[in-house]
Write a protein that binds this DNA or RNA. Structure first.
Ligand code: FES
Ligand code: FES
Lengths: 161, 161
DNA sequence: TTATTAAAGGACTGAGAAGTCTTTTTTTTG
DNA sequence: CAAAAAAAAGACTTCTCAGTCCTTTAATAA
């Protein structure tokens, strides 16, 4: 549905939103470890998001990524568009080069409305909205560790991701 | 949204549905040309669909692919599942390894319902339903040729795809 | 029964997404 | 100022999906 990259991006932004403010920044390594995302790959994604103005960054000791209060107002779709390019969700489900009711494919009227609603949602929900969800009991942004992984964690407590 | 492969698969099945019956079969080349899909790649997809029991095939002169009357009853989701593997549309939008209301991600309740409706549609719509749409005026399964492409067609009328 | 036709099968290539690593730049702090 | 910390930058690898090509098998028709 969404590319792995935009999944990483969404989860990271929410993690940063939850764990940072202007005086408490989070580093790539911290995010990577918490969400089990390859560290150096994540670094690239976060850079894109920072360049795109969706998150903030600062270098040096005590530096890292954080969200400013305005950043909570961005719609989730903006995150997806920055990493996956725009319009990735507006295309014809069958891959035709136009999608319109004037030149529809055979499933346009069947599935179009749902796809549009989905897109609409992603355009309306802000980072703040999603963060609120995340703060609810039993809402997660990271996978639970399997028994195996827990053992691994204990065995090599300082392992890099 | 859907992989390119399942887009090819859906369009091909509909094309075959429209243009074949037990005595008038269509070949890979014919489908590839009509839908502008790479011929040898399409061949693989059609083989999968045939093995999966969604379309029929026969070898030799006059052979090709066709649909039996029962084949019109298959849901579109079956086509997607055969080429992309099962459950490709049931996964968590953020890539968590479970998707459930008991262990939801922060956008589960926002977008889940629409995704479920989408999946529901694809499970209900049959090849026959989509074919009926296709027979409507102005419903298409192939891209219009651009001016450039038309010229190419004329210049090299027997070009392989 | 032989030639022809079309799918079946399998080996290979290419492009793009995902992942890794090293070096450079910027900032803080002692 | 020097050392350390962290992002920024960029080169490189790996993997998966998409695409190509060639050979084999099966069916038909002359
Ligand atoms: S034309 Fe295919 S989804 Fe709109
Ligand atoms: S848990 Fe993420 S969509 Fe259901």
């Amino acid at each position: 549905m969404l590319s792995r990259t935009s999944q990483y991006a969404l989860r990271s932004v929410l993690f940063i939103a939850e764990n940072s403010h202007a005086r408490r920044k989070v580093g790539v390594g911290e995010v990577a470890k918490a969400l089990d995302i390859p560290k150096y790959y994540l670094a690239k994604i976060l850079r894109k998001l920072a360049v795109g103005g969706l998150i903030r960054s600062s270098k040096g000791p005590g530096g890292g990524y954080y969200l400013d209060s305005e950043d909570f107002e961005h719609a989730l779709i903006a995150i997806i568009e920055i990493v996956d390019g725009p319009d990735s969700l507006k295309k014809c489900a069958l891959g035709l080069n136009t999608c319109s009711s004037e030149h529809p494919c055979p499933i346009h009227f069947y599935i179009g409305p749902f796809r549009d609603s989905l897109l609409q949602s992603l355009s309306e929900i802000t980072v703040g909205d999603a963060l609120q969800q995340l703060k609810e009991e039993n809402v997660f942004i990271a996978n639970l560790l399997t028994a195996d992984e827990k053992k691994k964690e204990n065995g090599r407590p300082d392992e890099r991701h």
